[in-house]
Design a protein around this nucleic acid. Structure first.
Lengths: 199, 199, 199, 199
DNA sequence: CATGAATGAGTTTTCATTCAT
DNA sequence: TATGAATGAAAACTCATTCAT
């Protein structure tokens, strides 16, 4: 008998509402600075409901990670496995990770800032999935290096970290109301990467 | 158990001991996950002593920042103002920030992970100092772009964020016992930057 | 050690138990000298329970005030608005505030000693309500002065402060096991007031 | 080498400076809310100095009491023992306590608000001295009642408490920049007392 | 499915006092 | 005389989690 906002706000299922609220708050104030009470208030439910659907606060964070990890891995797999020259596939992948990062900036801010606040067990799991992503990306670069279209002066691992560093950093400076669209940023950063890899 | 215990460890003054302990712990577990109790225990003093020298836990974090900010700004000013071609000065600056970041990896991990946990007032101050650093770096790139030794395809701002992203990221993957020395990493990352800027 | 322990003492709801314990302790040792720990121990609950019902220690004090303020204001309004000569109404009001003050001596001790220890915001609110009470009383005196049944030699404001001073002071000297009943004290003090106001 | 305010500020001896600072602060924020650190800062000395001259914070409060108690007792003794009719002596005493209370409003605010925060031992001592004062005043009233110039309808004790209640209360409402001078307030309150005592 | 009262261990911070110098 | 670093105990408050209903 409250908050009947629109008639479809209530249609969003409780677990989703909780996840959305948590994502927003974690991104705004960080995991440790967000209390369970604040999450349930933002989601319009009670604590009991949260613990009905999630085992712990930690679980909530882990779910946010799952969402962004699955999304990015899927997109990378698709782009890397496409039928195109390696420089095209790398460029597309490099630009795409920028666009999807910006489009899910809350999730990725949380990802990079709060990963080490997961329980050791879950942290390990996330790092393993992250590593899989990293290796798929690295394989692209190595492929280009072997075939001579990319310079082999820099170890592929370092190149990946170079690029991902800039993706990681997006949360620090990118603002949706700034002068550049996500796609423009993506193109520029992908260009920088490809130029750095010119033989 | 009086003043002359050890002859060396106890010779370090209390504020320094506190700062060292805090740096180590903040880097290991993050600012919010480190309790004042843990800090004073690691430093071998009592809470009263901490609050005798520092106004708050926040102050301690701010001091760590001060240290790394001053160091990096000094080095950048020296290198950027040297008497050498701009591509040399940029390369030196780009490599140097990598080396000093690695050499102070604890401080810089804290810097990038915990900056947003400072009080708003101190956060603002740190961001202002950080911006000064950023702008000095950007000026170098613009200088090279104007004189034609660097490509002007990418806005200088973005290039700075691209490079600093990778510096930021170092704390995530670099380990002192890995295969690369700090100087090697620095050379590789500086090369990537300069190659990306080739006209 | 579950819910039905005692059958009577435990039947009092937790917020009431907390308020009672706080009232007693604040009166005994003052607000600042009473710790939250002592309150919850006296009430037989934990700190968490206290903060579940009250926002702060300050809130608890404010609640005590609310109780006594509401009580006294109601009684004054009833007596002052009665259908009787003004000297009768003033006398009744003057005596009644003495009786109810003695009957709630803990509350009123707290009221007068600890009011200035409230947060500025709440302090202001309490003073506003207190002023309303004062003004209602003053209006009675002015009414009598205008109609000539009371001497107008002394400004009504001062007369009110004179009487309330003695009410305020009751907590300092009145003891329930002394020679005078509350009603006797009330009659004497009301007599003093009325005699002082004889034209 | 600091705070050379005028050339005679430094001439005030340290214990006096401490006492003055403590009086001011205790009156402003209360005894418990005033820290020793604040007192020494206001007095322009260090903590060591305070503990050199005073045994404890409690001692400081006790000294403030000593000052006001001695002053008021002396004045009462002089006025009550004067060679004049009893109604004159009571009137003078009643007015004088009002004037000296207002002239030392900080001290008396502290007196009435913080007395119960003294250590039990010192509290007892202060109460004993206070009682002596009270009894001297009561003797005056009884003298007048016996000789018939005052009504004996109200026990002398109660009359004393009635008057002292209003004195006590002065700290709550009197402001130096209000419409009434200390002497005017004193005259009015003394008048009220004497009028209440008319046979 | 969901509530919300209650817990208990934890947090940062304050402060009167001591003491070697 | 006076300093100020250091102590240690206590302060108010927070919060993830549980559980009877």
């Amino acid at each position: 008998m409250a908050k009947a906002t629109g008639g479809d706000a209530r249609a969003v299922p409780v677990p989703q509402r909780l996840l959305d609220a948590a994502t927003k708050l974690f991104a705004e104030r960080g995991y440790d600075r967000t209390s369970v009470q604040e999450i349930v208030e933002a989601a319009g439910v009670t604590k009991g409901a949260l613990y009905h659907y999630f085992g712990s606060k930690d679980d909530l964070l882990h779910e946010v990670y799952g969402r962004v990890l699955r999304l990015q891995q899927e997109r990378l797999d698709a782009l890397a496995g496409a039928d195109a020259p390696v420089e095209r596939r790398l460029r597309d992948a490099a630009a795409d990770v920028v666009v999807t990062t910006i489009e899910n900036l809350d999730d990725t801010k949380i990802f990079f800032r709060s990963m080490h606040q997961l329980s050791p067990e879950k942290h390990k799991q996330v790092r393993a999935e992250r590593r899989r992503y990293h290796e798929r990306f690295r394989a692209l670069i190595e492929e280009g290096q072997r075939s001579g279209v990319f310079s082999a002066d820099t170890p592929a691992d370092l190149v990946v970290d170079y690029h991902f560093g800039s993706v990681h950093h997006l949360g620090t400076w990118y603002h949706p109301d700034g002068p550049l669209t996500p796609q423009q940023v993506a193109d520029q950063l992908a260009d920088l990467l490809l130029r750095a890899l010119r033989p």
